[in-house]
């Protein structure tokens, strides 16, 4: 494998000279890969199958039929009830994140179809304040859930979040109860809820809607848990087991149903929707 090491070194040495954005280093296997190759591969490392973090819009494109997604309530904003301020004010922090992501909040929801099937879809955006759930995110998840219930269409959520949003204090924490209560009403019907967990999903998001799916799917190798690994390490003063809180670890411990790669995600969701259809809506006759 001499040549292998050599190219790696050369790539590393030449790093400064590489035209901006042409090459990318895999977070998992550290391999330098041509960016276009990753893009063609749905942002999945062709060497190690690591699923790069992608934006909420990319996730929407990944699982919905082209051009079918219609965003709802994009104009929801927080009133900043705590008037929170740390090194900068919460208001300014929100503005910075809006500029950075070209989104208005850490969640986006709306209607779409998946291989022709209508769904209510809500997706978290990790690059907007760590995908944290404040009042707006909570409200959007609750409304997406109520919409699924009203229209009798499946609810699909894709999570990627550090948890509750500290800057909204108890208003954030109570969103966990709010969205869970909305899902409780959905669960009294035969409306399907598929929850998809992406890297990373933690805290108040896992401890509410993300872990309440009728079917829970995780992306390969994604980190999922309640408490963050560093908090746990500090508390118990022990080293954590290898692959602790990885999707594979959760599958092994019975916490999720499936690990599905990006390439198969859309078809997997579609198949589940078809299979869970109530008899009267199922197309064709019984076998």
């Amino acid at each position: 494998m001499g040549w292998f090491k050599k190219t790696k070194e050369i790539a590393a040495n030449r790093k400064v000279n590489i035209p901006e954005g042409l090459w990318i280093k895999c977070d998992s296997c550290k391999e330098i890969i041509y960016k276009k190759e990753i893009q063609r591969n749905l942002q999945v490392c062709p060497k190690c199958n690591y699923h790069f973090r992608i934006s909420s819009l990319e996730r929407i494109n990944l699982i919905t039929d082209e051009g079918t997604f219609i965003e709802i309530d994009s104009d929801l904003t927080t009133t900043n009830p705590l008037n929170f301020s740390d090194t900068i004010s919460y208001k300014d922090r929100l503005e910075i994140n809006k500029k950075k992501t070209s989104l208005k909040e850490a969640a986006i929801y709306g209607d779409a179809t998946i291989n022709g099937r209508a769904v209510s879809l809500a997706v978290l955006e990790f690059s907007f304040m760590g995908g944290s759930m404040g009042a707006v995110v909570g409200e959007k998840i609750a409304r997406a859930t109520e919409r699924a219930l009203d229209k009798g269409i499946p609810l699909i959520t894709i999570s990627s979040s550090g948890g509750a949003r500290m800057q909204e204090g108890m208003f954030s924490l109570m969103q966990m109860a709010k969205v869970s209560a909305a899902i409780a009403r959905l669960k009294e019907t035969d409306t399907l809820y598929v929850s998809i967990l992406a890297d990373p999903t933690f805290g108040g998001v896992t401890a509410s809607f993300a872990m309440l799916g009728d079917v829970i799917i995780a992306e390969p190798k994604s980190l999922i848990g309640f408490a963050g690994p560093r908090v746990i390490e500090r508390t118990i003063k022990q080293q954590l087991p290898k692959d602790f809180q990885r999707a594979e670890f959760l599958l092994e411990h019975g916490m999720i149903d499936l690990i599905v790669g990006r390439k198969e995600l859309k078809n997997t969701i579609h198949r589940l929707i078809e299979l869970f259809m109530p008899y009267k809506q199922e197309e064709g006759s019984f076998p």
Binding site: D73, D75, L76, T77, T78, T79, P81, A135, V136, G138, E139, A142, E168, F171, M174, Q175, A177, K178, A181, A182
Partner: peptide
Amino acid sequence: LRKIGSLTQTGP
């Protein structure tokens, strides 16, 4: 629970 939020909606 549903009303806990402190939100505004500016309109389209």
